[in-house]
Design a protein around this nucleic acid. Structure first.
Lengths: 349, 349
DNA sequence: TTGTAGGCGTTATCAC
DNA sequence: GTGATAACGCCTACAA
């Protein structure tokens, strides 16, 4: 029976203050000053054991919780970090968020998540909203912001940004994986299985990762002294629906191919569906490779061969790096490298 | 070139204050008092157009943003709502969160998301953490908290809780869909296709929805004057892995069946994988029905027949209901009913 | 219409 | 070791 907030009814106990409980109430009940309560709360200084006991008892009795707004006002810190995602429903971002959640656990920091929807203007807007809340730090999960813009934001608070290469700074950490390598690993795998006509469902043209993966596709061909057929490269949007549409276009074009490299897992699912619709078997007639290794990829039929991205670990890394910049003592984590996961959507030609 | 935070260097402009910009700085630059600035910020009172212009200009010049902590301290409101999810990576919760995000858009409220991991103790802990931050409202997305516990929490701030039937209150709104109906719809569909030996992969025993769906499965049988074979009911955990394990148990038991009703889509995926592993065709040899209609269910092969839950709309509803309780003028939204979505994992026997 | 003054709850500084 | 006191930045009576 917490004693606070008893307005209409008579106070249930003589100690009950009028409004929400404050340090002063606790101090009065414990027979000490507010400063002493504060000191005990924060471990700022040594206090006599007897007083400590009295204060702790009073805190319990009154169910006292310090007002974070007041503390923030005084300290200039909000114990809140902002997370800029792009699409809160995408498995990519939720996996990263899990990593962040884990990395932030027990740190006292809580995440506020906003979505930028792959739109630089909206992203900047959301970040300003976050900054108006005086967040102590910010994680930017990929996106379309200009590097200079991010550097500018980093003048106001520590930032960790994923998916780009940026000069580190006391206030700015970037984590980056070579997405050319992802495209290269996927394509080389198909080439090594004897495939020579390999289609590619690319991601959005304005998306750096997509561009890099296409470059990796080209590099693997070059290395094998092959020239990819431009008719086999088509555009997707990183979503299932786009993968389905792209595969339909590929099929309708009549250009023959025996394998397809989709720039991410979600488009692989869509492509797979398009093939299924036409009765084209995977991997017997066409092999598929994706990128990401989303949790679902082990449960689609057949299980998807893909290039694993350490998304969870990136989230974990981001959280830890941010805490480090915020002055917390945390052990750093490593981001493992990209890795080809061979499952059952690819077979030797 | 924002003028604030120029500590080490000489001030770039004569207007630059020492620390972060405050109303007082704005007032000084605009040649008015701080209260006038506040009034303009909040539209609290009429002010002369000339002063308004000067203040707005000063705000722009100084890139001023009101300190939310100070405002919160004064007003007793944080413009923050807490969201208790269970697993931030589950498509169920992310879909709901999308709805919440949409419902909160442009309201000025930002969501803080925490996860309870289906553990009543952890859920209560997280909520206390949220409450320590003085959130203005709370959305509880299902979970294992006791009704009384929720009622107790609702004494401190408005709460919307999904997935239960609770007496509404000026501070408590519950939204609930009859999950017996979900199990009933799924099972009746299979029965109507001529299936008589229908297996069921149930959800966790301590999960109300799971229990209700099993009850619906039984009710559909009763209605058809059939008795489900207890050997065909097995336990899952609402995850893909649990669905896979459960289906393997079913198969190993030797009890014959021609269809399976899985208590959610994720377990359907796992069950589908187990069948695939053994070369059992879907729907030719075994039909499958799930519950949820996750976005992915239209893209698995074959596309999953399932009972659609309006998860997004539930999130939207929750956000709107909360805003309403917080005194905002918002138009209410309806939660559509459960609906059987017939795709391609079921066929007539 | 506008300014002055006081306080929201906390912590840091300074005395004792 | 402990207590008074003065901010932190904002908003809202109250006064003018």
């Amino acid at each position: 029976m917490p004693a606070s907030r008893s307005r209409a009814r008579p106070a249930p106990a003589p100690v009950a203050p009028a409004g929400p409980t404050t340090v002063i109430d606790v101090a009065r009940v414990a027979g000490v000053s507010a400063s002493t309560v504060s000191r005990i709360l924060n471990g700022t200084a040594r206090v006599a054991d007897s007083k400590r006991a009295a204060v702790e008892e009073a805190i319990r009795r009154l169910d006292f919780r310090p007002n974070l707004s007041a503390r923030s006002l005084k300290m200039g810190t909000t114990m809140t970090v902002g997370i800029l995602a792009q699409d809160i429903e995408s498995p990519f971002f939720t996996r990263a968020m899990r990593g962040i959640e884990e990395g932030l656990a027990d740190s006292g920091y809580a995440p506020i998540i906003v979505s930028g929807h792959w739109n630089a203007v909206e992203e900047a807007q959301r970040i300003r909203l976050l900054m108006a809340r005086r967040i102590d730090g910010l994680v930017i999960l990929t996106g379309h912001l200009a590097d200079e813009q991010i550097a500018e934001f980093a003048r106001h608070q520590p930032i960790v940004v994923t998916g780009r290469k940026l000069r580190h700074d006391h206030n700015l950490v970037a984590t980056w994986l070579d997405q050319t390598e992802a495209g290269y690993l996927a394509t080389r795998h198909l080439l090594s299985l004897g495939h020579r006509r390999i289609a590619h469902i690319a991601g959005p043209r304005d998306h750096g990762d997509a561009v890099d993966r296409l470059a990796g596709y080209n590099r693997a061909h070059e290395e094998a002294n092959l020239k990819p057929d431009p008719a086999l490269v088509t555009q997707g949007d990183f979503l299932e629906s786009g993968g389905l549409l792209a595969m339909n276009r590929l099929l309708d074009s009549g250009a023959p191919f025996t394998a397809v490299f989709a720039a991410n897992d979600q488009m692989s699912y869509g492509a797979r569906m398009a093939l299924y619709r036409r009765g084209i078997r995977v991997p017997d007639d066409v092999s598929i490779v994706g990128v990401d290794d989303l949790p679902a990829s082990a449960y689609v039929t057949p299980p998807l061969t893909t290039v694993r991205q350490p998304i969870y670990e990136i989230g974990l890394f981001a959280a830890r790096a941010l805490l480090h910049m915020l002055g917390q003592r945390v052990e750093p984590v490593d981001v493992p490298p990209l890795e080809l996961i061979v499952r059952e959507t690819t077979r030797r030609l």
